[in-house]
Amino acid sequence: MKTVRTAKELREAVGAVKADGRSVGFVPTMGALHAGHVSLIERARADNDVVVVSVFVNPTQFNNPDDLRTYPRTEEADSEKLQAAGVDIAFFPSVEEIYPEPDTRVFELGPVAEVMEGAMRPGHFNGVAQVVSRLFRMVQPDRAYFGEKDFQQISVIRRMVEIEGFDIEIVACPIKREADGLALSSRNVRLTPGQRAVAPAIHRILAESVDGASGRSVDEVKRAVTDAINAVDGMEVEYYEIVNPADMQPIAEWSEAEGGAVGCVTVYMGDVRLIDNIKYPA
């Protein structure tokens, strides 16, 4: 594995690959790597000749300074995991390397970025678009891989790709879960043992709502999920929306999502913010 820290080194390494006509798969991460990230790398490895992974905690997508401050940073462990996963090029840039000057771009991301995470975290998705567009220009991958845990983010990135005119395939990969159902997240390491013990209730309640959705309205299912999660000691729902995945807009009737709706939830456990989602069949 080749480790690089500057945009110049990255461009040279990827340029040599491209000159040989080999395809490049790219997995952008914020580090604190876990099996979910490894599953993205494995998919990239299967689809491409060369795999590039970036590890960068992007400050422009954090609207909460405390969240940025406490986000786990584990470079040595991350590097070992990337090596074990068979990554070809690992990019560990500094903030100054990604942002040699302030990024003042404002992306017109439209409705997909205005609801749920967009409403609760002002500026978050613009920061995501800033950093991913910069990384895409540096790496120039054929394909880029993102996990469906961040379901809304994938739609935002696809919109950014459209705006910027990138010729890059965005590949969405299934959520990776612990054996007890908890969606893998770098933030899980911040849960106390007590919180970790009850956290799988989020996915369990979402899964039960799919089984119980037949004959119930969208609003009834939303209320049932919200009430059930809030009833778990230490959990507080920030939002639960059932949306049309085509445009991320909340639906009032199941028929509004032709291919099936997606339920997206954010839950606070103390000061740890967990997200998850579930698909409802058409």
Rank of each mutant, 00 (worst) to 15 (best):
G260S: 10
A282K: 14
P100I: 03
V112E: 09
G36C: 08
G260N: 10
T60W: 01
G25D: 10
A179D: 14
A144E: 06
E241Q: 13
V161A: 13
D227L: 12
A246E: 14
R73V: 09
H124F: 13
D276N: 12
I98M: 14
R105D: 10
I157C: 04
Y268L: 14
V210E: 03
Q61I: 01
A85Q: 10
R134V: 09
R43L: 14
C173T: 13
L182R: 12
A35Q: 15
A144I: 05
A197C: 02
A7F: 02
I89G: 07
V210R: 04
S185G: 08
P102Q: 11
G259K: 12
G147N: 06
A183G: 07
T6I: 08
V267Q: 04
Q83A: 15
Y71H: 07
K81Q: 15
A84I: 02
P102K: 09
E208V: 03
R73N: 05
R196K: 14
H34R: 08
D167P: 01
M248V: 05
Y239E: 02
T70F: 04
D49P: 02
A213P: 00
V265A: 01
G123E: 07
R137K: 15
V50T: 15
E108M: 12
A224D: 13
G259D: 14
G123C: 07
P193E: 11
A19C: 00
P281T: 08
G165F: 12
P200G: 10
G118Q: 07
M1E: 04
E101F: 05
G86Y: 11
Y71P: 05
V128T: 11
Y240T: 01
L206W: 01
A197I: 02
M120L: 15
V55M: 04
T104S: 09
N63M: 04
A16R: 15
M269W: 00
W254H: 08
V161S: 08
K2E: 14
N277P: 06
P200S: 11
D233A: 13
S23K: 15
A207H: 13
S79P: 00
R223F: 10
G165M: 11
P72M: 11
V221K: 02
I168K: 04
I154W: 06
E162F: 03
A35C: 10
M116A: 06
E148A: 09
V50A: 03
A44F: 03
G25C: 11
V132T: 13
E253N: 15
V14G: 05
G165T: 09
T29L: 02
S186R: 01
V171D: 06
L184T: 02
K18G: 07
D180Y: 03
A119P: 01
T60K: 10
R190E: 02
S54Q: 11
A252F: 02
N64Y: 01
M30W: 03
V17Q: 09
R121N: 01
I154V: 14
